[in-house]
Design a protein around this nucleic acid. Structure first.
Lengths: 114, 114
DNA sequence: TTAACTATTGACAAATAGCATATAGTTTGT
DNA sequence: ACAAACTATATGCTATTTGTCAATAGTTAA
C-alpha cells in the first residue's frame, strides 16, 4: 500500500539509471535513493528485478561486494556505456512525458475557470 | 507510429477525465483529443475499456447518441460528481508525478556537469 | 540466542497492454 | 446499386508488467 500511483512505478526504471549515473550502488542503496523521490514504499523485489533485467540487456554490470559492511554480500551495479545511452533516451522520454502532464494540468485548469 | 512510453499510457486515464470535465464526448472523440497529446496511436480498445470501467465505478455515465451524425450510434460520456472528485485526485497525483520527474531530470543534469 | 536489520532471489498471482478481429452504420465514388 | 473507406464500439486472446509473499542468509544489537 504505497503512496504512489501506477504512473510513479514507471519512474523507477529511469530513476535507477539516473542514480547509477556517477555512483555505483547496490539494490538496497538504490531503494534508499528512491525514498528521496517518495517512492520508498516500492517493493524491493521490483528494484532487483529491474536491475537483473538491465544487466541482461547490458545497461548495467554488477560485481559482488563481499566486504561485509552491514550484512550479506551485495551486488554493486555500474552503468555501462549502453546504459549511459539508455539514460539519455530516458531523459528525453521524461521531458516528453512531463510536457504531456503539463498539457493535461493546463486543460484541467482552463476548464475550471470557464 | 506510437511514440509513447508505458509511462505515457498511464496518462490516458487522467486525460480522459480531464477531457470530459466540461464536454460530453464519445470514445472516438476522446481518441481524437488524445492525439493532441501525442497519444493518438493508442489502441481504441484501451480507451473503450477504461470508459466502461469508469462507468462501472460511477465516474462517468453514458447515453446512446442515435442522432447518426457520421456513423453508427455512439456512447456519449458525461462526468459524474464522483468523476469530478476523481479528477481532482488525479490532478494532485499528476502534480506529484511531475515533481518526481523534475527531480529525476535535475539529478541527471547535476551529475552531467560533475 | 533471539530479534531486528541488511540484502538478494524466486515463485506465483493479478493487473495491464497489445493485437487482432467482429460487428455495424454512414459516406463517397463509380 | 455496389464497393470501398471511414466512423464507432466491443471482445477475446496473448504477452508483458507489476504485486505479493516467502525463502535464504549474513550482521548487529539487546
Amino acid at each position: 500500500m504505497g503512496d504512489y500511483s501506477l504512473l510513479d512505478v514507471r519512474l523507477v526504471e529511469p530513476a535507477l539509471l539516473a542514480f547509477l549515473q556517477d555512483e555505483n550502488l547496490h539494490g538496497y542503496g538504490l531503494l534508499d535513493k528512491l525514498e528521496g523521490l517518495g517512492l520508498g514504499a516500492i517493493n524491493p523485489s521490483v528494484i532487483y528485478r529491474i536491475l537483473r533485467g538491465y544487466e541482461e540487456i547490458g545497461l548495467v554490470q554488477s560485481v559482488w561486494d563481499e566486504e561485509k559492511t552491514q550484512g550479506p554480500p551485495r551486488r554493486v551495479y555500474t552503468l555501462t556505456e549502453e546504459g549511459q545511452k539508455a539514460l539519455a533516451r530516458a531523459e528525453e522520454s521524461l521531458v516528453e512525458t512531463s510536457d504531456r502532464i503539463n498539457k493535461i494540468l493546463q486543460q484541467i485548469k482552463t476548464q475550471k475557470d470557464h
